[in-house]
Amino acid sequence: MVPLSLPHRLVLVRHGETDWNREGRLQGGQDIPLNALGREQAAEAAGRLKALEPGFAGLDYICSPMGRARETMDILRRDLDLAAGAYRVDDRLRELTFGTWEGFTWREIRKAEREQAHLRERDKWGFVPPGGESYRMLAERVRPVLAGLERETVIVSHGGVARAILALVGAVAPQKAAMVEIWQGKLLVVEGDRADWL
């Protein structure tokens, strides 16, 4: 994979926690709302962004269309005193889909589909779950979004999307990117081929 070179800083925010996150269930394309902790995490992200970038009002803001990401963006903008809804929504930033595995925990999947789960463990980047998509496919979906960024941007999206972006900019090798922990309530700041948590 040829790394993308981003001319501007990119700030990634993973949506806040949902009950399925807490239970370890694969959400993928399911629209699970934030829980109380998730709303607090969205507010924490706003505070971190305010501390990072005094000119936050002039940044571009783009969001996944999924409800948990949009609620996170809405809380973030409310706490920054920015106009509600004055951000772009891009369908290409929706979460990695896990197909028929959505709603199950990894423990349940390993028990019910041992061979498929083993194949995924051997190649998390390239493995396609039944009816779902791989991280490789997700990265190709997200690549044009990054290529089209024209200024410093805040993206509110999902763990899978953040992992794909880390691989796309060359901050982490693809096979390792699929295993990176993506925190809720923090900012992942990408500059060039570096990514740092704030």
Score class of each variant (00 low, 15 high):
residue 84 A to F: 09
residue 71 E to P: 05
residue 130 P to H: 08
residue 72 T to N: 02
residue 140 E to F: 02
residue 80 L to M: 06
residue 119 L to I: 00
residue 119 L to R: 15
residue 66 M to P: 04
residue 134 S to G: 04
residue 79 D to G: 02
residue 83 A to H: 02
residue 64 S to A: 10
residue 112 A to T: 12
residue 100 T to G: 04
residue 128 V to T: 13
residue 86 A to Q: 11
residue 140 E to L: 09
residue 113 E to L: 11
residue 123 D to K: 02
residue 83 A to E: 14
residue 124 K to A: 10
residue 88 R to L: 12
residue 76 L to C: 06
residue 79 D to P: 01
residue 114 R to N: 03
residue 125 W to Y: 05
residue 96 L to V: 15
residue 68 R to C: 06
residue 86 A to E: 15
residue 95 E to Y: 06
residue 74 D to V: 06
residue 87 Y to H: 07
residue 122 R to Q: 15
residue 85 G to L: 01
residue 113 E to A: 15
residue 88 R to N: 02
residue 71 E to T: 15
residue 135 Y to K: 01
residue 98 F to Y: 11
residue 121 E to G: 06
residue 81 D to Y: 08
residue 67 G to E: 13
residue 67 G to K: 14
residue 129 P to E: 03
residue 98 F to M: 07
residue 65 P to A: 12
residue 101 W to V: 14
residue 80 L to A: 09
residue 88 R to S: 11
residue 117 A to D: 13
residue 86 A to W: 01
residue 83 A to K: 13
residue 76 L to W: 04
residue 106 W to P: 07
residue 138 L to I: 07
residue 120 R to F: 14
residue 108 E to T: 09
residue 135 Y to I: 09
residue 111 K to F: 10
residue 79 D to F: 09
residue 86 A to N: 14
residue 132 G to L: 12
residue 121 E to H: 03
residue 136 R to H: 07
residue 103 G to Q: 11
residue 113 E to G: 05
residue 104 F to E: 13
residue 109 I to N: 05
residue 98 F to P: 00
residue 124 K to S: 04
residue 79 D to I: 08
residue 82 L to M: 12
residue 93 L to I: 04
residue 72 T to R: 02
residue 103 G to M: 09
residue 117 A to E: 09
